[in-house]
């Protein structure tokens, strides 16, 4: 395993990991800000028709951050994981739609 020690590829990877970590810290800061905005909107008691879509949108963006940066889905070699997850989200969407519409009508 000595082939990896001190090689340029090792130094390169280490630097790259560091860059990734910086991105992830920025991601974390964004997630905290989104959470604060969501709670703030609800506490400020704006019109529900305004608040609900926005907090849902913020939640979706936050989950996207979590998936693509924290869970590394933006990295190479994640095409099959994306297929799995998006199939899950597709079925999830239909499930929620079906259950909610049964009650509404």
């Amino acid at each position: 395993m000595e082939k990896y020690a001190g090689s340029t590829s090792y130094e390169f990877q280490k630097e790259k990991n560091k860059q990734d970590m910086k991105f992830q810290l920025v991601t974390f800061a964004c997630m905290i800000v989104f959470t604060l905005i969501s709670f703030g909107l609800v506490i400020a008691e704006f019109n529900p028709m305004f608040t609900i879509p926005i907090i849902l949108l913020l939640a979706c963006v936050q989950v996207g951050f979590q998936l693509y940066y924290f869970m590394h889905m933006s990295h190479k070699g994640h095409s099959l994981p994306s297929v799995f997850l998006y199939s899950g989200i597709f079925v999830a969407f239909i499930t929620i739609l079906a259950m909610v519409t049964i009650v509404w009508w």
Binding site: L85, V91, A92, I96, M99, V100, I102
Partner: peptide
């Protein structure tokens, strides 16, 4: 995790309905 998404979706759907 794809399967877990569906599991939680059914629970969310139930919750929203009830």
């Amino acid at each position: 995790l794809g399967g877990e998404t569906v599991l939680f979706a059914s629970l969310f759907g139930t919750y929203l309905a009830l």
